[in-house]
């Protein structure tokens, strides 16, 4: 199917044919689709890089898990994220992470009712209501926890979406197709993590700093964290990972040698509300 999707390549051939010999025209189409251009492997030959966002910064000295970080990959079976919440002592530590995401994705600042959040700060008791303890350590109680889409392996939002506007990619990312979303907000009701936001109003007037390389959204569609799919495609780390100073690790959960697997192997981690069976891909080291 993907191959024949390239038929626009020779669209003009059919243009000249008109409908007089429509069968010939279709045959012409088929012949052009027989040999699809192959998408080059970005590792072998880097994609035409019109976006100069800078390479990921890998700080080897950062006090993360004591493993050497792999270079950013661009393909995975199940992308996952491990947040070492111990490294976020106060809101100030989390702020750059949130800001990096907001800025790079043109996220507007709106009032609480209509706000758009891809990654944001939450308290422990809200993030893990089912893991609440009566006498939580003071430090954990006030620790800022980043909340974001869990890119569940079994995402209820994808199940609920009537148009496949939200879907799970082969690499595990739960993505939004803003072109297809009809704004029914079924996914928001289905998401048990409050990860989704709806554009109740036009976001553009409320975007403070603006990244021309990334589209804004139109009013009336749902959006959420996309694990920076656009950056991964270019072999870059997600913006939050990059801005986290090593507090957030990112990688392929299916790859035993990936950063995330290494970190998880060595640390106790939890996920949000696992009893729902959604299999979140965001892990928190407490």
């Amino acid at each position: 199917m993907k191959n024949s999707r390239r038929k626009f390549l020779k669209i003009a051939g059919a243009t000249a044919a008109g409908l007089g010999l429509s069968t010939t025209a279709i045959k012409a189409l088929e012949s052009t689709t027989a040999e699809p251009p192959r998408a080059p492997d970005p590792h072998a030959a880097p994609a035409v890089d019109t976006i100069k966002m800078g390479k990921p910064v890998i700080d080897e000295t950062a006090p993360v898990a004591d493993v050497k970080k792999n270079p950013p990959p661009s393909k995975a079976k199940q992308w996952a994220m491990v947040v070492d919440t111990r490294q976020f002592k106060s809101s100030k530590d989390l702020e750059p992470v949130v800001n990096a995401c907001n800025k790079i994705h043109n996220i507007p600042s709106l009032n609480k009712k209509h706000e758009i959040k891809w990654i944001w700060e939450e308290e422990y008791k809200h993030l893990f209501p089912s893991l609440e303890t009566k006498f939580l350590a003071e430090e954990v109680k006030h620790r800022p926890f980043p909340a974001l889409c869990n890119h569940c392996e079994n995402p209820p939002c994808v199940r609920a979406c009537p148009t496949q506007a939200t879907f799970k990619r082969k690499d595990g990312i739960v993505l939004m197709d803003f072109h297809r979303c009809i704004g029914c907000r079924f996914c928001m009701a289905a998401c048990p993590y409050g990860a989704r936001s709806f554009n109740y109003v036009d976001p553009r007037p409320n975007i403070e700093e603006f990244n021309p390389q990334f589209p804004t959204r139109t009013k009336g569609v749902v959006e959420k964290c996309n694990f920076c799919a656009e950056r991964l495609a270019k072999g870059q780390w997600p913006a939050c990972v990059e801005a986290s100073n090593g507090a957030i690790t990112f990688g392929d959960l299916d790859d035993p040698d990936s950063d995330v697997r290494k970190v998880l192997k060595n640390n106790f981690s939890v996920r949000r509300n696992v009893s729902l069976g959604t299999e979140p891909s965001v892990y928190y080291i407490i």
Binding site: R159, A160, C161, P162, T163, Q164, A165, R180, C181, I182, G183, C184, R185, F186, F198, N199, T218, K219, G220, V221, V222
Partner: peptide, 26 residues
């Protein structure tokens, strides 16, 4: 009521253009 609840009513036909059997709304 469903139509006025949609954020993008112009795209309402997507419901049948992309029939999604696992969605109850379909």
């Amino acid at each position: 009521f469903v139509m006025v609840d949609l954020g993008q009513p112009a795209r309402a036909l997507n419901l049948w253009l992309h029939p999604t059997l696992h969605s109850v709304l379909f």
